[in-house]
Nucleic acid binder design. Sequence first.
DNA 1: GGCGCGAAATGAAACCTTTCAGCGCCAGGC
DNA 2: GCCTGGCGCTGAAAGGTTTCATTTCGCGCC
Lengths: 374, 374
Amino acid sequence: MKPNVGIREVAEHAGVSVGTVSNVLNHPKNVTPANLAKVQRSMLELGFVRNDLARQLRMGAGSTIGLVVLNISNPFFADLAHALEAEAELNGHTVILGSSDQNAEREDRYIDLFEEQRVRGMLIAPLDGVTPRLSRLRSRGTPVILFDSSADPEHFCSVTLDGTAGGYMATSHLIETGRRSILFAGGPFSQVGERLTGASKAAREHEGVTLSLMETNDLTVAEGREVGDRILAMPAASRPDAIFAANDLLAVGILQSLILASDLSVPDDIALIGYDDIDFAASTMVPLSTIRQPRDLIAREALRLLHEEADAGSGHVHGRHLFMPELVVRESTRSAGAAAGAAGAAGGAGVAGGSVASSDASTARGTAAKRTGA
Amino acid sequence: MKPNVGIREVAEHAGVSVGTVSNVLNHPKNVTPANLAKVQRSMLELGFVRNDLARQLRMGAGSTIGLVVLNISNPFFADLAHALEAEAELNGHTVILGSSDQNAEREDRYIDLFEEQRVRGMLIAPLDGVTPRLSRLRSRGTPVILFDSSADPEHFCSVTLDGTAGGYMATSHLIETGRRSILFAGGPFSQVGERLTGASKAAREHEGVTLSLMETNDLTVAEGREVGDRILAMPAASRPDAIFAANDLLAVGILQSLILASDLSVPDDIALIGYDDIDFAASTMVPLSTIRQPRDLIAREALRLLHEEADAGSGHVHGRHLFMPELVVRESTRSAGAAAGAAGAAGGAGVAGGSVASSDASTARGTAAKRTGA
DNA sequence: GGCGCGAAATGAAACCTTTCAGCGCCAGGC
DNA sequence: GCCTGGCGCTGAAAGGTTTCATTTCGCGCC
């Protein structure tokens, strides 16, 4: 219909210069009320829409934030995306989405794509830790914030939950409710390594506790059901009395599988704890105990860091921000005898051990962040 | 570090003109192999990254696709986003995300934001049907594809499941497995109207079937639990013997609530069917019968339409694309007596009624699309 | 009435790319 | 040997905005 109507047409129509129109958009207070009104009327009449591409081009950098997650179908990432997007929108920023689907090639393509789009910064849950590609990206000037606490805090900002503490909490909780033979299910281990580390630490600190492992290819419901089936196939005597699933999806699948075999009860025969506290965790047949990650806090902090890095330029000091997770006790780990303390969201109650990680945890109370600067 | 390195610096470094560098990027075959190699080497050495903003600006329109959904935390939309994004990435396009959170103001802001970004097109699950704002958007030239079959096919392309057919299928299935007193739970009705229409049509076609309604504010697990509680509060005699929940989240909540009250059994006392077939539907304590929506097909078709509309310009003929949903039978509607036919994903088996919608459904078999052109 | 000052408006430059008309050059046909 | 055509390269224009050095205007004050 109309050939593109730009700032120039508006200026002509309103009888002012392009500079004035630009000022109306960006520095209204430097414009006479009379002119302001005139220009605004012209904009309406012509149906002017500011071209953000040109704007970003001229201004040097984007108003867009790239998010690369492992899989957007995972409710944890969906919630994270949701929180990020709400937070970004407050500043007129926009989130563009990339789901790597656990595929390094896709991850690379998204990084390239986003860099070409001159995103203001990227938030990445990297597949293989920090690759050279990420380093190059950063050194070219694109702020990068990682969801991965194993990153080198010298060169990258990262925002994560303390997976070691979380794993420790979960396992300690299982131990304190009387379980002794614990199975850690999850994988690939490269992705859930910290949780495993925490779990094994807790196990080592207690006499008579054994921790066994079952690695999965993925953290999905389907994989969980397979884990469940494998457990059911074990001789009853050698079955674990508790399972720590590396995320809630897995736990849901395990639960499903165990419960269909009606001779086993959760939590009486086998206790089960997950990780993430996705919305469904409270809605499974046996409501799932889990480790809660404050996604909105993570999102907010990630964006804060991103902006800081974008604004400060090279003078920026990277930091690793570890949020302390929180234990959420529900039915699936109820102790066989009496209930262990108050149920509900009593954070960290079971993590009174002497380790550094756990004392940090109880200090931080699940909300504060600890900064490890460079 | 480096001042931005652009096509110009590359040209200088390689000893060619900017035009040649551009050709290397866009029409490599018009460039001498020698020059091509020289330029590519220079790009690598300088760490050149093409500026997509300038590119899009010059080329007139974007490589970005705006997606505005009701809530990205809803697994149905998360899956849709996932499918879209995978599909878009094939063409080097990018998906930017907006979650309106059932809030008209947010929806508006996203539409504005995306228009300013000169998206190639928008996919919108509109809150209040087609608003004047959407019409204006379209008339200014941005392709708009709706997830809402109630849209006027004269002026918009839309891609949806046939909600009426789905509602009819679900309800017919309940009736055929012997249920007579059916409760439709969901809302706001403006969003699930078609499903309700289909349900009430199926009810009317059968003697002795009553359909009652319970409106919700939202389609979430929490609302579902409230629905469940309300049902439990009813005198046992007047409780429905089947519930058709307008989506799976709601159904999950209802299930949770009913099952915690252990005197009721699903499906024996109350059958339950959901809508969407989210991943969790198969993983709830009682696996949930539901209506499956082929999300990846929808995504693909939506993008096809979007590109068609973007390329064809004003000569484009809008169309409404209705995909036929598919009945997925699981435990939660098992008939009280024997199992009704094979369980599993036996599509449409229960939808042999004489109505137009259902015969279309069995013809289309859940994959084909029916086009209602303008 | 003239001077100077601050506020407001101006218009060209810059951001980085793609496109395109034009130019030089070489091979081949006459 | 000259003309034609084709191929590759060149360099400037265009695309819409913001920025900024300048110009213009209005007003108070001497």
